[in-house]
């Protein structure tokens, strides 16, 4: 490989590495939500379905 080309390649590699680091600074909100849900499942032991708890029968009218 010719030296000029090698230099160019190295510069491009360095630039793209910097770009990756820059992207990584943003907070990954979706991943954090997923992580939170996993931990909440475990701590509150809700693993058997996030649906309605059968303990309270739905009262008359609209139950939220």
């Amino acid at each position: 490989m010719n030296p000029a080309l090698r230099w160019l390649f190295a510069a491009a590699l360095a630039a793209s590495a910097t770009a990756c680091v820059t992207i990584n600074i943003y907070f990954p909100a979706a991943a954090a939500e997923k992580a939170a849900d996993r931990i909440i499942d475990e701590v509150w032991q809700m693993r058997e379905g996030a649906g309605s708890a059968p303990a309270t029968p739905p009262a008359a009218g609209e139950a939220k």
Partner: peptide, 24 residues
């Protein structure tokens, strides 16, 4: 690798704890 994310992690959890709180 981002200690500065702590506040945002807390905010995300806060919202999820509230949303997933059981009826009552």
């Amino acid at each position: 690798g981002h200690p500065e994310w702590e506040a945002e992690v807390r905010r995300t959890f806060a919202q999820r704890w509230l949303e997933r709180a059981q009826p009552g």
